[in-house]
Amino acid sequence: MASKTLVTTTLAAFAFAAALTGCKGSEPSATTTDASGAPVKVADTIEAREANFKAIAKANKAAKEALEDSAPDFAAVSASATSIQTDAGKILGLFPKGSGKESGEKTEALPAIWEKPAEFTAAADKLATAAGKLKAAADAKDAAAAKLAMGEIGGACKGCHENFREKKQ
């Protein structure tokens, strides 16, 4: 009889511990599907897109600094342009449906991304095109054209932020 009471008490303790764990807010994270239809965690998707945009910003800064030198480092500008163009090509895949605020995850992505997909695609393409112009200018060692392309990159970033990103308070 004592062993039956011990088993019952142990099972009750496990059930209580499991219930407490559930009460601590350990809810499963929201999921969506990627371009291939595979399930992905929204938090991971948001983290990946933030990392992608940080990489774009880092490459943009490196290109700007390389162009500011009295003797521009065109190889560095070209490499940065390639990086920006590659990362710009990833943007659309990093915004699957269900990865906005409706997921419950923290994101600055506005609903306009999914409501106006053609405009969002055009914005991402504008960045990739500007990066291609920067690469061509850098490869030609044309500082004036490279600086114009840098302005186009800045304009592409600004346009996307104004239309598809929540304004920071």
Rank of each mutant, 00 (worst) to 15 (best):
K4D: 15
K4W: 08
L6P: 09
T9H: 00
L11T: 10
A13K: 05
A19H: 00
K24Y: 11
G25M: 01
P28V: 07
T33L: 02
D34T: 08
E47M: 07
E50K: 09
N52H: 07
K54C: 02
A59F: 02
N60F: 05
K61R: 02
A63L: 06
E65F: 11
A66K: 00
P72G: 09
S78V: 01
S80P: 04
S83R: 01
I84R: 01
Q85A: 14
D87Q: 14
K90M: 12
I91V: 15
P96N: 07
P96A: 01
K97Y: 04
G104M: 09
K106W: 01
A118C: 07
E119Q: 14
T121M: 02
T121F: 00
A123S: 14
A124F: 05
L134F: 07
A136L: 08
A138S: 13
D139G: 11
D139T: 13
K141W: 00
D142P: 14
A149Y: 05
E152L: 08
I153D: 12
I153P: 08
A156R: 02
C157D: 07
C160G: 13
H161M: 07
N163R: 04
N163Q: 13
F164R: 05
E166V: 12
K167L: 12
K168I: 08
Q169K: 10
